[in-house]
Design a protein around this nucleic acid. Structure first.
Lengths: 343, 343
DNA sequence: ACAATTTGAGCAATCGATTGCATATTATAA
DNA sequence: TTATAATATGCAATCGATTGCTCAAATTGT
């Protein structure tokens, strides 16, 4: 019992039983009498025993750790999904190891390597923006380790995934703007290699077409969708004197940039230009006017992702794992930035 | 080699050497010839060998995992500190397990228990707001496991800690408002059991006194400092018809609430009321007017915290560990909400 | 009262990597 | 040429918990 760290052997010695008995008692094995169990539990408490998960993991082959890879935890959406995952994981005594890829391909590979090294029982991930090659994910699958993707997924991998209906969200958002009388709606998008942005753009376009408005490529601006990108894109449109009466951005950050630039250029919001973002970041309710945006159902998404994960983990022996895709409906949160009639 | 997972034994067998040799070769032990090392590395690659950290951790007693406990990763400050910690940790091949306490005492205890279970080599933590008893931290120390606290610390524990000079930050902020001509400065604070809020309040008070302004208890409002709390506090002050010309809040969230309520009540910002927050959350540059706030130097704080941690970890055999307190100077970020002359 | 069950607990191998100590081989020194 | 040192590798125990198998004691049945 060096270092003040008691093991089952210390308990065993104290009680003059074997470590096997202690182990079984602690795991509430029916082969051990209640009397012995009580004694063991008592001794464990007295010795301040802390189970060594590592030893347990080595023997049982289960670390009870889930690796979660997100681009950044510093985003309301991702941290909420993580929270949703944790809720489920903790309820079955699993712990979550959060890894940030910082949207960097190299870092994403390293982080997955590191997670496999620490022997996580499986990985839940949202793919980084710069990731175009998914071999590192294939490696996970090849090792037979459960993998579930959420939000930023890919079709190149035959794995279970949980996404929101980006198409639907964008369609709703765009249709809402049309219903408020907008006809020249600017759209901020990101690389079309990233599924979510592709889908959002498709939703935007289909909503326009449904209402007999043709898609004008001049109105669609591609960028990384950061605040600065939103500023730049908006300024470009203004400078090019392209007429417009609304902006629907695939990100709340870039719509903020647009809002700033519009104000700086003397536009009145929402009278002159109506705005809708995507993501429902907390700051969207702080802005002036408050921002209409699309809520991505992050906590439920986390819950469902974790549940899907455990389904796979528990049926893992069976060879035929069916990968399923769960699609959640996002919700349009209507605030003042898109309304003629302020509420 | 079941499950496609190769071990050092598989490599050993393939090369007709022993596992010891393979282990040493992989660890670049000088007792192994370069020729053998090369062969081992090659075979490892061919077999798609992935080191089993768990086995290694069990034997060596080092998991190469650091547990980081934060109230919530969904805060710019905390996620940036985490990033700062990760930078250092990853550079020495350590991995970070992030745990959120959600500012809940129970959850904080559980999470620490879980971290100890997974055998982290040490813990870095920021104490939750509702935590008043620190026995769970004492337990960490008693086990001889390195512990470093940052930001939300306590004096009850003799451990190394890294904090910003909250007093200084608050003093600067308040003095800045005074220099802009304010004399009746409202202060939003939180429980005085939490050191950072106590210090910020002290800084506020001392700045007032330095400039011959007496501290008016009516102007100091205590709450949880969320957006809603800021709204409520501000409304209270307005309703009570207490004269004021500025608000300095210990949190960016509550100052946002104040900003909303002030606008709703027809105050002109910053002409009628000047505002300063604390935290430099990203949204502070999105608001109208943009918010003056105090930047907490989160990335450097993370770096220093991690460095301090590794110092302790590496001198751990020596019994006399000196706990040191590092204090970083925060920076006042002056934006429009506090200026007579807009920039 | 004796065989057949049931119950409770011990033995020993195992998970994969590490490491102190021994050993075999080769190189260097005397 | 033989003793000595240096080099390269093997042997076997170990980290702490788990688990299939064995065995002894207690209980039940006839």
């Amino acid at each position: 019992m060096k270092n003040g760290k008691a093991t089952i052997h210390d308990i065993a010695e104290k009680l003059q039983v074997t470590a096997s008995t202690v182990s079984r008692a602690l795991n509430n094995n029916p082969r051990i009498s209640d009397a012995t169990k009580k004694k063991v539990l008592k001794a464990a408490r007295e010795l301040n025993y802390q189970p060594n998960n590592i030893a347990s993991a080595l023997r049982s082959g289960r670390s009870k750790l889930i690796g979660v890879v997100v681009p950044t935890a510093n985003r309301n959406f991702f941290s909420s999904v993580i929270r949703g995952i944790e809720e489920i994981a903790n309820s079955v005594n699993y712990k979550v190891v959060i890894s940030q890829s910082y949207d960097d391909y190299e870092k994403e590979m390293q982080t997955i390597e590191a997670l496999l090294n620490v022997q996580v029982d499986g990985i839940i991930a949202s793919i980084g923006k710069t990731t175009e090659n998914v071999d590192h994910f294939k490696k996970i699958i090849k090792k037979g380790i459960p993998l579930v993707l959420f939000d930023r997924v890919t079709n190149e991998l035959d794995v279970s995934q949980v996404v929101i209906d980006d198409y639907y969200g964008a369609f709703q958002a765009t249709e809402h703007l049309i219903n408020e009388g907008c006809k020249r709606i600017v759209h901020f998008s990101n690389s079309q290699n990233i599924n979510i942005y592709k889908e959002r753009k498709r939703g935007y376009e289909d909503a326009l077409l449904k209402h007999g408005i043709s898609v004008d490529p001049e109105l669609i601006r591609f960028s990384k969708l950061q605040l600065e990108d939103g500023r730049a894109s908006m300024q470009e449109v203004i400078d090019a004197k392209i007429p417009f009466d609304a902006v629907f951005s695939a990100s709340d950050y870039s719509i903020m940039g647009a809002m700033q630039v519009l104000k700086e250029n003397g536009y009145k919001l929402p009278q002159d230009v109506k705005l809708v973002g995507f993501g429902d970041e907390p700051f969207t309710s702080f802005t002036e006017p408050t921002l209409t945006t699309v809520n991505q159902k992050s906590i439920p998404m986390g819950n469902i992702t974790a549940e899907t994960f455990f389904e796979i983990l528990n049926q893992k022996d069976q060879t035929n794992i069916i990968s399923k895709k769960t699609i959640l409906k996002p919700e349009l949160i209507i605030r003042n930035s898109s309304l003629n009639q302020q509420k």
